[in-house]
Design a protein around this nucleic acid. Structure first.
Lengths: 219, 219
DNA sequence: ACCTGAACACCGTTCAAGT
DNA sequence: ACCTGAACACCGTTCAAGT
């Protein structure tokens, strides 16, 4: 039943069976994955490095071979989160070529869904636990990329005169604020909406996005 | 040099010098205050109950007389935060009587300022560490009150036909999302704005609020 | 009633040691 | 190179005991 079926590539059997360093193929990825899971299962305050190590089946000091410290591991998880936001925006763009208003609408829906699915990760990404500066370049880069994708939607909208000719950063920031704020208030349960269905959340998001589009639109 | 100057109130010296229960007048408030300070000095992950107790000058188990556990103490701090949001909104209303658009603008500015001044507390309030349900009634009540104040602005705007006749909760939620999201992105340092002056932040906030007002305004 | 000190199980991190 | 186990200082929480 082992996955280690060790299919021997003919002709390559000369030197060594694949390195298999001690226990794991790539412990780094496994640690990140386990951390992500444990993070969402509880909350950020109660995520422990030792628990992550145990889940992976490795001694509690092993993660230190791959991450400088706990914060560095958290930064890795957060970077994955930003990468996913970037991917979702890219997908939204693909779905509605030539229609920036629809792209923004779609991206908003996907953003909210992502936050609802990974609330604790979002908390980690935006919560002020991780430093904002360039301590973790990968984290910074992933965040910047997501924001660039959003700005491209805005720029396309300005080119086709659907969005007003304002500062791009300003409009992008406005859009992100609106959707991000909405998502955060959702997971916080500020309204009784927390208990409501996904459908209602989508309806709500659509309404908010409409208002946003109304605000940044031309005329 | 002791503060314990013990000025004896003439005529009241009969029974007892003021109760002075062991050490502190009201340890509960002192603990909340110390927790708030320590929270902002570091971050939420590294706030420890023992450090709070030490700062107050009391044994590390003393807080358990006033709070069921650490989470309960955090809930107390968060409730103070929500109360302050409510106060700021109320002040914004007072400043611009009869002008709901200006009230919303003013409340937005004050909200952003409050978040900038207490980023870690905001993280605590909205971060998903505290449960959303009715575990902490005071916390819930403080949050609800702040939201009610915001809704009153919206309703006044609808009465005087400056805001469109949409669902009140929807418009209020849209406004809060927009401002809250902006604040969070500010403290996250998503843009290079993090390093910029308070003035620029105010300008930015004004622009976003204008877009918001444009979105929720009448025709 | 209010506070203390010892005790317990847990945590992050370091380091010498093993393969 | 990669992983382990012992060790350290810290943490949240409980509990018998003190005033």
């Amino acid at each position: 039943m082992s996955v280690q079926a060790t299919a021997i590539k003919p002709g390559s059997a000369r030197k060594s069976p694949p390195p298999k360093p001690y226990h794991h193929g790539d412990l780094r990825r496994e640690i990140l994955c386990a951390a992500r899971t444990l993070l969402e299962e509880n909350n950020i305050a109660s995520l422990s490095l030792r628990a992550v190590a145990k889940k992976v089946g490795v001694s509690h000091t092993a993660p230190y071979r791959h991450f400088k410290d706990k914060e560095s591991l958290l930064a890795g998880v957060a970077a994955i989160g930003f990468a996913e936001i970037g991917s979702q925006i890219a997908r939204a763009v693909e779905m509605h070529p030539g229609d920036p208003a629809a792209q923004l609408q779609e991206a908003g829906q996907r953003y909210v869904q992502l936050v609802m699915d990974n609330p604790q990760c979002v908390q980690l990404m935006f919560g002020g636990i991780l430093p904002c500066d360039d301590t973790y370049p990968d984290l910074r880069a992933a965040g910047d990329l997501a924001f660039e994708r959003l700005k491209m939607i805005i720029e396309e909208g300005q080119s086709s005169a659907v969005f007003k000719q304002d500062d791009v950063e300003l409009l992008a920031m406005t859009a992100w604020s609106c959707i991000h704020g909405l998502s955060v208030l959702f997971i916080h349960g500020s309204l009784d909406i927390a208990a409501s269905t996904t459908l209602e959340i989508h309806t709500f998001t659509k309404a908010v996005t409409a208002t946003l589009l109304n605000g940044i639109g031309t005329g």
